Simulated assay, not measured.
Amino acid sequence: MLTVLSATGVGPAFKGGGHGDGWLFVAFAGVGVGLALAFSPTLTGALAAVRPEDAADAGGLLATVTRLGQLIGVAVFGTLLFDRLESLGVPGAYTSAEALLTCMFALATTAAIGAVSGLVLRRR
């Protein structure tokens, strides 16, 4: 949820054509800390039920799937960002701050879905 709140705070940092100032650094730091706090428990939970003799294979598969997910995430969010930036030459189109805002809200939504699904799976 820290990632969700911080990612949501990045876009408004540029509101009114500003540069984000110190708030931008705080928001990006919050995104990083939130992702760091979520990453290790997620990997631990994924490997907790694996038998010791399957641990090496499961760890390799988990690392591969994690990297694949990161690549797909960069591609999807990068496409969203550059799709918004591409229309900059058109009058009344998005500004770079609005493109970043759209991308960060999409990232925050994705993080929120991940947090909620983690809670739902944990309660089962």
Rank of each mutant, 00 (worst) to 15 (best):
L2N: 03
L5T: 08
S6T: 03
A7E: 01
T8R: 04
K15M: 12
G17P: 00
G22S: 06
L24C: 00
F25K: 01
A27I: 04
G30H: 08
V31F: 01
V33N: 03
L35Y: 12
F39M: 15
S40G: 13
T42D: 05
L43Q: 13
L43G: 12
L43R: 09
G45L: 04
A46E: 08
V50I: 15
V50K: 12
P52F: 03
D54C: 04
D57H: 13
A58C: 06
G59S: 15
G59Q: 14
T66V: 11
R67Q: 15
R67D: 13
F77V: 15
G78M: 06
T79R: 09
D83G: 15
D83Q: 12
R84L: 09
L88P: 00
L88F: 10
G89Q: 08
V90E: 07
V90F: 03
V90H: 09
V90D: 01
P91S: 14
Y94F: 13
E98Y: 03
M104T: 06
F105Q: 14
A106M: 05
L107H: 03
A108Q: 05
T109K: 03
T110E: 00
A111T: 01
A112S: 05
I113F: 06
I113R: 07
A115F: 12
R122I: 03
R123K: 12
